[in-house]
């Protein structure tokens, strides 16, 4: 039953105009890179991989996982359940033999799938373009493919936790718009206000982009510039993972507690 819900949801999301606009927006770094890329002095798979790690990290930290990317995730994820509650269609699901946990997970994973495409496609396009640029063919592609996967996993882990939080807020508030606004509020308070407070050392770590840097450091060993991101990779990963799990649990609880007047 969860697969029916999941398939339907992914299909609906991929068909929406919102998805296409967001995907185009996320392709922007590729365009920028196309016009501004470095001069290539060495055509080898090794040189390609170093450059790929540097460029992907930069774009991820400064664009993909910055405010704009966070907005995209919040908008997508806070709509999943809240739109059903808001329009009353959740009642159609409640009279079907589908568990509430299946509803939550089906929705969450369909959102994550969409987010993976919105970010993964640009990463992949970037990778293919760079492989062509470095004329390193299939060898270059396989060399950078695990970097591509790693970057995507980091993105999904960090932004997925943000998405899970907005999903939780959307169930509490029952309105996609309010939930988006609340998520923005929460995230930006955490990112901009917390570092201002005097009693935290190393305050920039409250920034999601910063945490992306920390997480990338483990996989992108060829990019020494990432060493400036201080922090324990395992701790960060565990933190984001537990945010996801906790948010989903509370979302489920919220769904149990709620009444649907519709």
């Amino acid at each position: 039953m969860i697969s029916v819900l999941y398939q339907n949801e992914v299909y609906r999301l991929l068909k929406s105009r919102r998805f296409k606009v967001m995907l185009l927006l996320m392709l922007l770094p590729v365009v920028i890179y196309f016009f501004t890329h470095e001069e290539i002095t060495e055509y080898s798979a090794k040189a390609l991989e170093i450059s790929f790690q540097i460029n992907i990290s930069q774009f991820l930290i400064n664009f993909w996982a910055s405010v704009i990317g966070q907005l995209i995730v919040i908008i997508i994820m806070s709509d999943l359940l809240a739109s059903e509650i808001d329009r009353g269609t959740i009642r159609l699901l409640l009279v079907k033999p589908i568990k509430k946990s299946e509803i939550v997970f089906g929705k969450f994973f369909s959102g994550i799938t969409t987010v993976s495409l919105i970010f993964g496609i640009p990463y992949l396009v970037m990778e293919i373009y760079m492989v062509l640029l470095y004329k390193s063919g299939f060898e270059g592609f396989t060399a950078t493919f695990d970097d591509f996967l790693y970057a995507l996993s980091v993105t999904i882990l960090v932004l997925g936790s943000l998405g899970a939080v907005s999903m939780l807020l959307s169930v509490i508030l029952s309105r996609p718009l309010y939930a988006s606004l609340a998520s923005f509020g929460l995230v930006f308070t955490a990112q901009f206000i917390l570092p201002q407070l005097p009693f935290f050392d190393n305050p920039e770590r409250f920034n999601l982009s910063y945490q992306i840097g920390v997480l990338l450091k483990r996989g992108f060993t060829l990019h020494t510039g990432l060493d400036t991101y201080k922090g324990d990779v395992t701790m960060s990963a565990l933190f984001f993972l537990s945010v996801i799990l906790l948010s989903l649990t509370f979302t489920l609880l919220g769904l149990y507690r709620k009444e649907y007047e519709g």
Binding site: R87, G88, T89, R91, L92, L94, V95, K96, P97, G262
Partner: peptide, 14 residues
């Protein structure tokens, strides 16, 4: 719910 069909007062649908 495996064996219930329901029709709400105000039709709800996607």
């Amino acid at each position: 719910m495996k064996n219930v069909g329901y029709m709400p007062e105000v039709p709800i649908a996607y």
